[in-house]
Each structure stands twice: as structure tokens, then as C-alpha cells.
Amino acid sequence: MTDFRFPVEASQVLAFARAIGDENPAYTDPSSREAVELGAIPAPPTFAMSAAHFEPDYPLRPRQGRPWPESADAGEAHWLHAEQHFEYRRPMVVGDVLDVVQRPGRTWDKASRGGGTLRFEELVTEYRDTRTGEQVVVARFVRVLPVTSGEGE
């Protein structure tokens, strides 16, 4: 049932916090106020994105023996990340090992400003504590891709 396993590690949290420009000491110092309150270094709210490193078939990463960029000419090439949502059941912290399960969510179409059609697709990802089985985070990724182009686009 588990798609892959995602260990929440201190060095990755440090690198992620630096990349988003958040210098809150909670993300690097176990003796900082919030890390002490939470019992461990917390992950930034959007850190679950970095689970991509552990996803075996994640397409947006160069892989040995495969052309890169893989999707330059494929139909998948022109989708864009439209929305991202997270629900937190408890804070994700360093030391967590999470079981990650993904499933497709809703799909809907919307008229674009240029008169074409845009398709929105959801991907729902659950992150569960491997020890207790409890949900830690539920994420909803929404991407958009043009299915028909209108005039003037």
C-alpha cells in the first residue's frame, strides 16, 4: 500500500529552510524555543514537497540511462503547478519516518481567458507515521494543462 518511505532528516530540513529563505532557528537548532516545545526540529510547512527525493519514479529528476529533459516533446510537457494545499494533523519533525501514499483526486475543466479549455488535475498524498500509522500530513497537488487552445492565446 505504501508507495515509498520518506525519512525527515535534519540536513534536508536545514537545506530546505535555507532555500526558502527562512532563517527561523527552529529549523536548525534543537535547543531553539520552538524545537524544544515540539520535542524535535520541526519541518517548514511546505517541506513535504521534498519527499520527491524518495519517490522512485519522480519524473522531474534526471536518471541514468534516460533522456533529460524527458518530457521536452511529450504531451506532458506543458502542465503547470496551479495550487498546493496541506492539512497538518500534527507537526512534521526531524526523526519522523513517513509512509507516503499517493492517489489521483478530482479532475475538472475550466474555460481559459483566451477561449480554450484548461484541465485541472489533483494528486492527493498522505504522509503517515510508520510507527503509529497516524496521518501526519495530507497534501493536495493541483496541476493545470491546456487541453484545447482558443484563439488569441
Binding site: 510547512p45 511546505t46 494545499h85 507537526p91
Partner: peptide, 26 residues
């Protein structure tokens, strides 16, 4: 997009605390 959203999270977590967050979307 997630760089902008991740960076923007700071305005919320610096205010209410990281542990207080129940949802965040953009």
C-alpha cells in the same frame, strides 16, 4: 511556485508558531 509559497509561509509561522499550523494552501 513552491519557492514563493514556502517563503511566504514564514509570515504565518513567525506569527502563530510552526506547531500551531493546521492547514496551509496556495
Amino acid at each position: 511556485g513552491m519557492l514563493a509559497m514556502g517563503a511566504s509561509g514564514k509570515v504565518v509561522t513567525d506569527w502563530v508558531g510552526i506547531g500551531a499550523l493546521r492547514s496551509f494552501g496556495g
